[in-house]
Design a protein around this nucleic acid. Structure first.
Length: 280
DNA sequence: GTAGCATGGTAAG
DNA sequence: TTACCCTGCTACG
């Protein structure tokens, strides 16, 4: 269930557990077995995340590129001294295991869209296709703004386009549009600069917070009277997966937008005159 | 036990 | 625009 914050969290955790350590690498499922054999016993030098892409950089200059897709998952096992990780389920494509002062750690990658061993040029090519990532300090929001000007689609589609900006998925999309009062069908190039700057600032705050908290919270706790610590998933969004608008009780409209659900309170987010979605 | 869903993306037509 | 990839979890019988 990964948007960018999940991937950055994984990168941070994996760095803490494995960076600078010699690791055991395997592929119980088999599909990554040849690469795993080459990596087994090497040092995992560092990890990196760009948008929804995770990279494990090894000491030979190559990287494992991971993309979780819609339902990829990484399971974690904390190890105690001398005890190996549990027997992996047979769907584990990539297991990494290392000893450490705290006993050690293992991770199991399952269901990922991408798990492949790449050289530096191939990694660079992937990163080059991506727009700026609001979580990264080196992100240049100007690139996203420029890309928006060139899009003829609605802002709802543009926000999910990883070439415009990297890391936003269906939840953050629904929520940032809600908070800024924009209907998903509003043409991307009609967004004004001031609004875009504010949206970018919101995303930076939300996504970075998501990395720390390991989950998505977009509602203001004061507004709903539930503290963050006690907030359940169903409380944590304004429009995403909601039946009614949290602010004005208008039924949330849910509709298919290029194969994903889009959510909008059409009171708080007035639709444009011509719906992109009203095309036959 | 199994249908249906999920915070994604790509390649082909 | 469609087909397809990839798996775990939940809600139902």
């Amino acid at each position: 269930m990964p948007e960018g914050h999940t991937i950055h969290r994984l990168a941070r955790d994996h760095a803490g557990w494995f960076a600078g350590r010699e690791v055991r690498v395997s592929s119980p499922q088999g599909r990554f077995a040849a690469a795993a054999a080459q990596l087994d016993g090497r040092t995992l030098a560092a990890t990196d995340a760009v948008g929804k892409h995770l990279f494990h950089r090894y000491d030979d200059g190559r990287s494992v590129h991971i993309h979780l897709g819609l339902f990829g998952k990484v399971f974690h096992h904390a190890l105690t001294d001398g005890v190996a990780a549990p027997e992996p389920r047979d769907t584990v494509r990539y297991r990494v295991e290392a000893a450490g002062p705290d006993g050690g750690h293992a991770i199991d990658l399952v269901g990922a869209t991408a798990c492949e061993l790449l050289d530096e040029a191939e990694v660079d090519a992937i990163v080059a296709r991506l727009g700026p990532d609001p979580i990264r300090a080196d992100a240049d929001p100007e690139r996203a703004w420029a890309a928006l000007q060139r899009r003829s689609v609605g802002i709802g589609r543009a926000l999910m386009d990883q070439a415009v900006l990297a890391g936003v998925g269906n939840v953050y999309r629904a929520e940032v549009l809600f908070v800024h009062g924009l209907h998903p069908d509003v043409p991307a190039r009609e967004i004004d600069r001031e609004t875009w700057d504010a949206m970018w600032a919101t995303l930076v705050e939300w996504l970075r917070r998501g990395v720390k908290e390991r989950r998505i919270i977009t509602v203001d706790p004061k507004e709903i009277g539930v503290p963050r610590s006690r907030m359940r998933r169903a409380d944590a969004t304004y429009a995403y997966h909601q039946e009614h608008c949290r602010r004005c009780s208008t039924p949330i409209r849910r509709y298919d937008l290029a194969g994903r659900w889009a959510y909008a309170c059409e009171t708080c987010q007035p639709p444009p005159r011509r719906h992109e979605s009203s095309r036959p």
